[in-house]
Design a protein around this nucleic acid. Structure first.
Length: 473
RNA sequence: GAUCCCUUCGUCUAGCGGUUAGGACGACGCCCUUUCACGGCGUAAACACGGGUUCGAUUCCCGUAGGGAUCGCCA
């Protein structure tokens, strides 16, 4: 019998207190790639146990973000808040087995304890004051919390797939709260129970959770559960090396979409941020699935670099299907113009796309470059283009061009090329002297795709009319 | 303060005891050229510091400095 390969189950477990930020997106990507690489499962769990801060809008934003990035999850979404009873059940099992205990210390009392520890320069942690106290000491009117009875001697070792073997003395761990005084479970308990119940084999998350892993380890241990493999990946920092804030990259993925980035470009960028495969830079998703592994993940934090993202985006823009780009760009063009481009304009945009996408790094730039195809006469002419147009010489050249072009019967890039180059030769004018004023007249700007393509896409009537507009001003 | 983690060009990284320390982005220069791009070629640019171990350290060990994370009845 062929033995089935070790199943891999990963998960992405955001708390819905905001959008899907870039760090979360990368964590999701790594989990997704890892599970896809191993033919396993990628589950999604919403950690909405903080009722104060969790919102439906955030849940929607996270799901939309994952969807846009193309990171599809398996199975139903698990909502952590709905599993509170199960979490409490585990806490009580721990309590019954003597692996947890009730603590009656008040919030104020604990705050005071921490204050004192801080003042004395001692480590800040729960001192275990109720760990071995008899239940008969319990004050009658205080609702207790349940704390884990964590080992105090020896050490805990985690063989992290990214960080390596990390050891911590158990004396550094304190007895964390499992169940609050109102009976609700804490995050520490919930993650462990959910990861166990969901059959998670690999916990891939930000390394801000590394120290949590040591405490969570003992819940697994005391429950007699298998401990999943951990992989704590470094955080992403802003361009200045400081923690990512709203000032730089800590934007929701939809902000990147709105800045005109393609999901495949962001995926490639995020993949290379903290992960490497030799000298490879352009790694399409199919290839990434084949190559991705955890030992390619670096151990140090990396900075977010928009310049590199732009470069990658330019690459994927050039690769992208023209029709797809048109449908992405037209709404942006509509926004700039305040009206929806008609079918003709859409068609022109499609025809011009090969020349257009070569010249853009983002969809915003692409839309900017495509604007002249939808704009109506008389064309607005920008400053630089005006300079090119506002000379007697330019008008004369445009005049020649106009009559030359008027006689062209076969309005294609090839024959237009022939006509204009011929004119350049006959008149003894450098070709650039013709092309530039022509471009200014046709586009209203000094940059555009090749001039023959512009003429061809605009069509005979529109082209001639735009040239005439400039001769007659 | 305590504990843990990190440190190769400006940035992302390759390197896994012996290399002219490689690639990519960005920068600069040249070429191509009707503009802008694309593309091609090239230049500048790094092993944080100090000790060990070793015939030999960017690579292994220990310190120092710098950075980060965590220390809640938040997640």
């Amino acid at each position: 019998m062929p033995q089935s390969p070790a199943p891999v189950v990963t998960r992405f477990a955001p708390s819905p207190t905001g959008f899907l930020h870039i760090g979360g997106a990368r964590t999701a990507l790594f989990n997704w790639l890892f599970s896809r690489h191993h033919g396993g499962q990628f589950l999604l769990r919403i950690e909405d146990t903080d009722k104060e801060r969790s919102t439906q809008a955030a849940i929607d934003a996270i799901i939309a973000g994952l969807d846009w990035l193309g990171l599809d999850h398996d199975g139903e979404i698990v909502f952590q808040s709905r599993r509170a009873a199960r979490h409490a059940e585990v806490a009580h099992a721990l309590l019954a087995a003597g692996n947890a205990y009730r603590c009656y210390a008040s919030v104020e009392e604990l705050a005071e304890m921490r204050e004192r520890a801080k003042a004395e320069g001692k480590p800040i942690r729960y001192d275990g004051r109720w760990r071995d106290r008899d239940a008969s000491d319990a004050p009658p009117d205080v609702a207790p919390v349940i704390r884990l009875r964590a080992p105090q001697d020896g050490e805990t070792v985690i063989d992290d797939l990214v960080q390596g073997t990390v050891t911590i003395a158990n004396s550094q761990l304190d007895d964390m709260v499992l169940l609050r005084s109102d009976g609700s479970p804490t995050y520490m308990l919930s993650v462990v129970v959910d990861d166990h119940d969901m059959g998670i084999t690999h916990v891939i998350r930000g390394d801000d959770h590394l120290t949590n892993a040591f405490r969570q380890f003992h819940i697994y241990d005391l429950m007699g559960w298998d401990v999943p493999r951990f992989a704590h990946i470094p955080l992403i920092h802003g361009p200045d090396g400081a923690k990512l804030s709203k000032r730089h990259g800590a934007l929701g993925v939809e902000a990147y979409r709105d800045m005109g980035y393609l999901p495949e470009a962001l995926r490639n960028y995020l993949l290379r941020l903290g992960w490497g495969h030799g000298d490879d830079e352009i790694i399409p998703t199919e290839q990434a699935i084949e190559w991705f592994d955890l030992d390619g993940v670096g151990r140090s934090a990396s900075r977010f670099d928009f310049a590199k993202l732009e470069n990658l985006n330019g690459h994927y823009l050039r690769q992208a299907d023209d029709q797809r780009l048109v449908s992405l760009v037209l709404p942006i063009v509509a926004g700039k113009l305040g009206r929806t481009p008609d079918a003709d304009a859409a068609q022109r945009t499609l025809l011009a796309m090969p020349g257009l996408k070569e010249r853009a790094k983002t969809l915003l730039e692409l839309a900017e470059g495509a604007l002249f195809l939808t704009e109506e006469r008389p064309l607005a002419v920008d400053e630089k283009a005006k300079v090119l147009l506002d000379t007697p010489e330019a008008r004369e050249i445009l005049g020649h061009a106009y009559s030359g072009l008027k006689s062209v019967s076969d309005w294609t890039a090839e024959s237009l090329d022939l006509t204009l180059r011929n004119m350049s030769e006959v008149e003894g004018i450098k070709f650039g002297k013709i092309a530039q004023p022509l471009r200014a007249a046709l586009v209203g700007r000094t940059t555009s795709p090749g001039i023959f393509d512009v003429l061809a896409v605009l069509g005979r009537d529109e082209s001639l009319a735009r040239i005439a507009d400039q001769i007659n001003t």
